[in-house]
Amino acid sequence: MGDVMIRVSDSVRDRLAAIAEARGTSIRSLVEELATTTLTPAELAERGTRVHAALKQNFGVDIADSDHAELQRRMDATLAQVAERQGRGAA
């Protein structure tokens, strides 16, 4: 597979370079990691379907779609508290 050029602003390139340097890697490796580890919306939805089915089959838990927003709010609040305790501020 050949290389492809991705055009970004100078400030984005500089930020990617700084992040890559801090991680001891290259911009190329950083972008490849992002592309291979970040889920698309379709992949997230499919994963959610699988998790929902596994919860129902293995634990008898059936989470209604109407419960999703409240569960997401609670999870976000918990993650924000953890981040705050770690001194990073809210995520």
Rank of each mutant, 00 (worst) to 15 (best):
G2Y: 11
G2I: 10
D3Q: 11
D3G: 10
V4S: 12
V4P: 06
V4H: 12
M5T: 15
M5W: 12
I6G: 00
I6H: 03
R7P: 05
V8W: 00
V8S: 02
V8D: 00
V8E: 01
V8C: 02
D10L: 07
D10V: 08
S11P: 00
R13T: 01
D14Y: 01
R15N: 07
R15T: 08
R15W: 04
R15Y: 03
R15E: 14
L16F: 06
L16E: 00
A17S: 12
A17Y: 03
A18K: 07
I19P: 00
A20R: 01
E21T: 11
E21I: 05
A22N: 10
A22H: 07
R23K: 15
T25L: 06
S26C: 05
S26E: 07
S26G: 06
R28C: 06
S29R: 15
S29Q: 14
L30Q: 05
L30G: 03
V31H: 01
E32N: 12
E33L: 12
E33F: 11
L34V: 12
L34C: 10
A35Q: 10
T36R: 15
T36Q: 13
T36V: 13
T37E: 11
T38V: 15
L39C: 06
T40S: 15
P41Q: 07
P41C: 05
A45T: 13
E46G: 08
E46D: 14
E46Q: 15
R47T: 08
R47Q: 14
R47S: 08
T49R: 15
T49H: 11
T49S: 13
R50C: 04
R50V: 08
V51S: 00
V51I: 14
V51Y: 02
A53D: 14
A54V: 06
L55H: 01
K56E: 10
Q57F: 05
F59Q: 07
G60F: 01
D62R: 08
I63V: 15
I63W: 01
I63K: 00
A64Y: 05
A64I: 05
S66Y: 01
H68D: 07
E70C: 06
E70Q: 14
L71H: 04
L71E: 03
Q72S: 08
Q72G: 03
R74C: 06
M75H: 11
M75C: 10
M75N: 11
A77T: 04
T78M: 13
T78A: 15
T78F: 12
L79Q: 09
A80F: 02
A83S: 15
A83W: 07
R85T: 09
Q86M: 10
G87K: 01
R88P: 04
A90S: 14
A90F: 08
A91E: 12
